[in-house]
């Protein structure tokens, strides 16, 4: 009896397959169960780092990394973790991974590290990571947890990049500033593709300073939620 149970567990554990269920683990958080627009988690950093695309991209990669491996390690240890201290154990794992990200940034790109400053450290308190560990990784095998972490990290990153794209374009008139392939789209200088100083059509245009402020991200997230809900049937509140 006990033997078959162990065999069953082993069978489940070793299953590194990539079927329909696994694909759903990644695709679900991108739309139907998006951590930002549906679960409304991780808003703090979504407001703070999205004024430019570059820091948003780095932040997204960092969260994908932390979310993936925190899920993986928590899931590996899930049967050993004492229930009474499971949250602290999860925090130790997350904090360790975030510190790895911090070291990596200092090593590879100090300027971006300075730009993101305190927000890298704040990934530790990002509700998305901890939420996934509690809700998924504690109850599923490492492979599935890894995919779930990846999916949620990507879902978070996708929204971050959409917000950053809009904010940078309308706030600064540029795209990808600071990456070396900076596109100067619209502004009052000959450097820009559309020079508002001598354009017949865009003479009235000025960069919107509200877009640079964190508050703009709140509006954009609101509008994104609205758009998503109006076309995604699963999210329509039937009550």
């Amino acid at each position: 009896m006990a033997d078959t149970a162990i065999q069953d567990v082993k069978k489940k554990e070793s299953g590194i397959s990539f079927g329909k269920k696994e694909r759903k683990l990644i695709s679900d958080p991108l739309n139907d169960n998006n951590p930002i627009t549906v679960q409304v988690l991780g808003i703090c950093s979504a407001l703070a780092v999205t004024s430019l695309i570059l820091p948003s991209l780095v932040m997204s990669i960092a969260v994908v990394f932390v979310c993936m491996f925190a899920s993986f390690f928590t899931s590996l240890l899930r049967k050993q973790i004492p229930n009474s201290v499971r949250m602290i154990v999860q925090l130790v794992i997350i904090a360790g991974l975030v510190t790895v990200v911090e070291f990596a940034l200092k090593y590879f790109n100090f300027t971006v590290y300075k730009q993101l400053s305190v927000y890298i450290g704040l990934i530790i308190t990002n509700c998305i990571v901890m939420g996934r560990l509690e809700a998924f990784a504690m109850a599923n095998n490492p492979w599935k947890s890894l995919l779930d972490g990846l999916g949620n990290g990507l879902g978070y990153g996708a929204i971050l990049l959409i917000i950053a794209f809009i904010r940078e374009l309308f706030g600064k008139g540029t795209l990808f500033a600071g990456t070396g392939i900076e596109w100067k789209i619209i502004g009052a200088s000959p450097d820009y593709m559309i020079n508002t100083l001598d354009s017949t059509w865009f003479g009235w245009y000025a960069n919107n300073n509200l877009m640079v402020l964190p508050a703009a991200a709140m509006f954009i997230i609101g509008i994104l939620i609205w758009i998503q809900r109006s076309y995604n049937e699963k999210l329509v509140d039937i009550s």
Binding site: I81, P82, N83, S84, V85, V89, V92, G96
Partner: peptide, 22 residues
């Protein structure tokens, strides 16, 4: 359920491993 001793040991080992790696 896990005993207090086990919990303590688990935490100490985990912290030590993470601290060492970092």
């Amino acid at each position: 359920m896990h005993s207090t001793g086990y919990t303590l040991r688990f935490i100490i080992i985990l912290t030590a491993v993470v601290a060492l790696l970092l």
